[in-house]
Design a protein around this nucleic acid. Structure first.
Lengths: 159, 159
DNA sequence: TAGCGATGTGTAATAATATAACATATTGTT
DNA sequence: AACAATATGTTATATTATTACACATCGCTA
């Protein structure tokens, strides 16, 4: 568990701090790129980070609604689009849901371990997985641009 | 390209034969399990196999419609559910679409290489990718039950 | 071979997820 | 203050998938 390629957080952690850090990093990342982390986008990011589970677009919508009157889908999808473009949020395709990026400050590959019992999503960047994929692609003569690697099962806590 | 773990078909092949083989294997697999490959299910499987691209549920629906009057979504989704349960078809989550299984006769892992240019999906079973994932999971203490590995990019032909 | 339970299909309605198109507002710059 | 660029509001609709219940067919067995 000392492998630097493993970025999973400890099971117990100060989540308020965890969210604050994520938002701080987002501010920095956006500032560096002159990207506008508006109030709405920041708020959506905060809702995504509310837990380490993946959140659905319409759940975000429901949580936003009381704050901004009646929220419409494009409000959320546009914010998510921005956040994904800047690597602050990932889409989990197998769940049609979204999760905060565990290491938004750096470009990286990612693999997601999704617990079907508690819903927690652990993001890691394991270079050996990336290398194995690259070798497979090479044999096929395939040029990889985007990797979607999502493993479902049970996390350590839920087993 | 001689690696036995690579099951990708040749770029040029007799596709009519390819479909016939897939249907024959499906018959055998179902017979062995006393699973009923009904006319409808067989027809859906055939439509999925019409090409090596992933096909959407509603595309299948449209193609079925003229044959059986007006087809409703459950008709297709139920057939696909059966076909997936028996490993004859895979769902490609990143496309919300379905593709015929390249090796339905055997249990296996699979990784999908999806060409975003021509839409062709190549399924391979590369044990080294599987092993890398297993090692990553072990370090996390995660028990993997279902793997979804989908790589997007450009196939050899389209580059 | 008639009757029965299990399985499969038809049908209508609706839920869940996502985008298009256009209007308005805000921001940053001249 | 005027303008262009960016962001958000709003309405409508597209796409993907499921629920619920009715009816049909299959395979068994009494």
């Amino acid at each position: 568990m000392t492998d630097p390629s493993i970025h999973a957080r400890p099971v117990k952690h100060n989540h308020a701090r965890c969210v604050r850090d994520a938002l701080d990093i987002a501010e920095q990342v956006c500032a560096r790129r002159a990207a506008r982390l508006t109030k709405l986008r920041r708020r959506v990011l905060e809702l995504v980070w509310r837990s380490h589970k993946a959140i659905k677009a319409y759940e975000i919508l429901d949580q936003l609604a009381p704050e901004i009157g009646v929220a419409q889908p494009p409000t959320v999808y546009r914010a998510l689009e921005f956040l994904m473009a800047h690597g602050l949020v990932h889409r989990v395709d197998s769940l049609n849901a979204f999760v905060g990026c565990a290491d938004a400050a750096h470009r990286h590959d990612a693999q997601f371990f999704i617990c079907d019992s508690c819903g927690t999503v652990s993001e890691i960047d394991d270079v050996t997985i990336g290398q194995a994929v690259s070798r497979g692609a090479k044999r096929l003569g395939f040029e990889v641009e985007r990797r979607m690697i999502e493993l479902h099962g049970r996390c350590g806590v839920c087993q």
